[in-house]
Design a protein around this nucleic acid. Sequence first.
DNA 1: ACGTTAAGTTAACGCTGTTTAGTTAACGTT
DNA 2: AACGTTAACTAAACAGCGTTAACTTAACGT
Lengths: 206, 206
Amino acid sequence: MGVRERRGREKSATRDKILDAARELFLACGYEGVTMRKVAQAIEYSPTAIYVHFADKEALFRELCVTDFRKLAHVFREIAAIADPAERLLKAGLAYADFGASHPNHYRVMFMTPHPARGHSADLEKGNPEEDAYAFLKATVKDALRAGRFRPELKDAELIAQTLWAGVHGVVSLEIAKRDDAWVDWRDYRKRVRLMTGSLLRGLLK
Amino acid sequence: MGVRERRGREKSATRDKILDAARELFLACGYEGVTMRKVAQAIEYSPTAIYVHFADKEALFRELCVTDFRKLAHVFREIAAIADPAERLLKAGLAYADFGASHPNHYRVMFMTPHPARGHSADLEKGNPEEDAYAFLKATVKDALRAGRFRPELKDAELIAQTLWAGVHGVVSLEIAKRDDAWVDWRDYRKRVRLMTGSLLRGLLK
DNA sequence: ACGTTAAGTTAACGCTGTTTAGTTAACGTT
DNA sequence: AACGTTAACTAAACAGCGTTAACTTAACGT
């Protein structure tokens, strides 16, 4: 009685130590730059100890991603309070871009790297706008659609949502992948984000 | 006399064999899915033989990319003949999206993967619209700018070009990274490309 | 006191990209 | 014609990777 719980707490304690060390390393070195051996060394455990708590390297990383993407969904909760659906879309775009720029390594693995099938981790609840940022976007598009804000030939909420997402994602992902590329004389990131969201919405709305 | 040349020809012959085998493998398996040993086995050479002709795996892959991206620039040459700069931008976007969808592995490494500094390979000539697709885009934006086609507050060709690029890149890169993700009920790729280019231009032009 | 459970370890496997040292065959030169 | 050089190519190995199998160890419930 209570012992099982203490054991559970102890286990999740070293689990958390792994997560903390891994987060720091992933942030500093990126996905490929982090090795299981490095994570283990950081917490002074053997590399195999990690496999007691996580199936593999990807599962470890995805747990960190899920945590951070829940944070993104929380930011969206505040934005959900904005009455005007068009302004809601704009603010959501800006928040999304901020998020991507401040979690580049998570963003890379979540949205810039092809994964073999397995639709996300099953830990995030699909369709629930509190956990699923795409569901939030789609819901807001539907609101704007109902309010008759989009140009008359636009009727497919899914198509509109995917286009809005792609627009902001384009700015975010180019920033992450090509920020240091001298080939292009990059303009300020936030300027690019604002021009993208503003222009795209102007082109889609009435 | 002539012997040196024949030697050179022989060397470049096995060099080409490596390139041919590598192209096929990279297309089929993606960058990480290809190993130097597999390439070597395909041409019945030892793995180390590749290092006589290429510095490392990345150099081998980038040579293939450069070849293919020169092809993209050639497609743009035809588009350059279109008189109306706005229509030219539209057609360029569609051609770029076609290209990305048919060379996903090259596209991934070129535009979706962060690289340590080293601005591209030095093999492509920066600023020359015949080899540099971004230079072509910027030149067309400048044309449209001169023709007074953009909304009056838009004056920075670089910023406009980067936003147009980001828009199409967003659609292309999401398609490559998340095509098989059941989380999203994806609409047809070409529909998404057209809505992106069309809406973005509508939002940027007068 | 005893059998069970599970966190954690050591050693190893099979793989990767790459390097070192060496072979071999054709070359230009004497 | 013999010799030293050059360079394509190879065999073996290195250091690293993610991961697995077999084992130890310590605390648990009975």
